[in-house]
């Protein structure tokens, strides 16, 4: 049988294709299942949250923190309900992570608050004695790159059909001409977060119309639930 195939490269190629295509199909088909659709209530990230997400990626938070709660009691007791695939529908890329040096963050918005994050990012050991997480003080005076965040969100909307500007969904706009309006909305959102913070430099920066990274990052972390 194998000699027959070896003598006929065309059929051999077809056979190889079929075998590999079957394996591919098994991987792809589940993505069309209902379970992979966005879970009800899942919303795309707002501009400020995207900027925070970029900060999260830039400072490599995902190297030590996972965002995937497995269905084990020990995990759901500590981190909240197990993760569903449909919850990552608007994550590009998803930040599941592969290593938990620190705790999982997939639902951190449910049990940590703005003021806690502020204390923790400024000096982790001030709230978690024995923590080995480094301090992220630079986030308090470095501003986010809102234009890049807007470009990412706009790409998500146009290329991947992420439902921005639809009823009940965050507003974004359709082109770079809409950026000033989106920037204004992000600033409004940032003001609400800064109001719950204590750091005067951050409050001043937001009042001046700037958005420090810490504000965007907290907006992102609070959105995780």
């Amino acid at each position: 049988m194998f000699h027959w195939l070896e003598k006929r490269p065309f059929f051999f190629s077809v056979g190889v294709f079929l075998v590999i295509a079957f394996a591919g199909l098994i991987e792809i088909v589940p993505d069309f299942a209902q379970a992979s659709r966005p879970v009800a209530g899942t919303k795309p990230y707002t501009l400020l949250q995207i900027a925070g997400r970029q900060t999260y990626i830039k400072d490599s938070c995902n190297a030590c923190h996972s965002q995937l709660i497995r269905p084990f009691k020990s995990e759901t007791d500590r981190y909240g309900p197990y993760s569903l695939s449909g919850e990552y529908a608007y994550d590009r890329p998803f930040l599941w992570g592969s290593k938990r040096t620190g705790p999982d963050l997939h639902r951190v918005g449910e049990y940590r608050t703005t003021d806690w994050h502020e204390n923790h990012m400024w000096e982790p050991t001030s709230v978690v004695p024995g923590s080995i997480m480094p301090a992220y003080k630079h986030m308090f005076h470095q501003n986010v790159d809102l234009e890049t965040a807007y470009a990412e969100a706009l790409t998500d909307k146009i290329v991947f059909n992420v439902p921005y500007d639809q009823p009940g969904m965050p507003k974004l706009g359709n082109s770079k001409e809409d950026f000033p309006a989106a920037q204004k909305m992000a600033l409004e959102e940032a003001k609400k977060i800064a109001a719950e913070m204590k750091n005067q430099d951050v409050k001043d920066a937001v009042a001046r119309g700037e958005i420090p990274e810490i504000v965007a990052l907290i907006a992102y972390l609070n959105s995780l639930h």
């Binding site: 909240g80 449910e110 049990y111 608050t113 703005t114 003021d115 806690w116 719950e196």
Partner: peptide, 11 residues
């Protein structure tokens, strides 16, 4: 006044 405490209902 100090900060926000989340609800632990269900947790």
């Amino acid at each position: 006044f100090i900060g926000t405490m989340v609800s632990f209902k269900g947790r």
